[in-house]
């Protein structure tokens, strides 16, 4: 079951966070929606190595959740969390309904034993970095104060991605305490920058705490999934 969930989770993060283009997002009430759902189907087929009821079901549920979000929910943090939470829940449910889907697929016998673990780790890492990026952007929901803290939006996003990757690696590597060192290092970075304005600093603190919380949640969830493999 956990192998099926790992493969479908990777398919999900690829379809939502790696291969989805802004054209698909902008036209999500039109052609982009169909393209996105086709992408969800294609990534599920590729990751699970099969065209099956499980793949069709996971695609259909993705369609229903996305349509409900687009039509019913405003773009807020809670709607983003609800959307991703429902997607993950649906993947777990499909995994429970079709526990042998991975074993029935093309890859189970053709790839090394450790592959599902690698899939789960890759999916968790992408989710920690990329899904976290959007969650934090929606959470702070204020544009960067240009030049106020001597840092551009691109730098902030890059550092955020790196810190989530580091926290994720620390937890998966069994040295979760290292994430405190990373947090301390970043706090040191703020105070050392004299030019930082109060709003800029406040924004950076909020974003960093959210970033750490997101990375820790993604890492522990991934660790739990790997433990089930």
């Amino acid at each position: 079951m956990a192998e099926t969930i790992a493969a479908l989770f990777l398919a999900h993060v690829l379809a939502d966070y790696v291969l989805q283009t802004r054209w698909m997002v902008v036209t999500k009430r039109g052609a982009g929606f169909a393209a996105h759902i086709a992408l969800v189907f294609a990534t599920a087929v590729a990751c699970l190595g099969q065209i099956s009821v499980a793949v069709v079901l996971v695609t259909f549920v993705h369609l229903v959740i996305d349509a409900a979000k687009t039509i019913l929910m405003p773009d807020r943090l809670w709607s983003y969390l609800a959307d991703q939470g429902l997607h993950i829940l649906s993947i777990v449910a499909v995994g429970a309904l079709f526990p042998g889907a991975w074993q029935a697929g093309l890859w189970a016998d053709a790839v090394p034993q450790a592959t599902p673990e690698a899939l789960a780790m890759l999916a968790g890492l992408v989710f920690a970095i990329r899904a976290g990026h959007f969650a934090i952007a929606v959470y702070i929901a204020s544009p960067p104060v240009p030049g106020a803290d001597g840092m551009t939006a691109r730098h902030g996003a890059l550092i955020g991605g790196l810190e989530r990757a580091a926290v994720f690696a620390a937890v998966l590597g069994g040295v979760a305490a290292l994430s405190l060192v990373i947090l301390a290092a970043k706090a040191g970075l703020w105070w050392s920058r004299d030019g930082a304005s109060a709003p800029g600093r406040e924004r950076a603190v909020a974003a960093t705490l959210a970033s750490f919380a997101w990375a820790l949640a993604a890492a522990y969830a991934t660790r739990a999934l790997i433990a089930m493999l």
Partner: peptide, 13 residues
């Protein structure tokens, strides 16, 4: 931008 978190946020302005 089309959404907060848009990767071109740093460059578009």
């Amino acid at each position: 931008l089309t959404a907060p978190g848009c990767p071109v946020a740093g460059e578009m302005p």
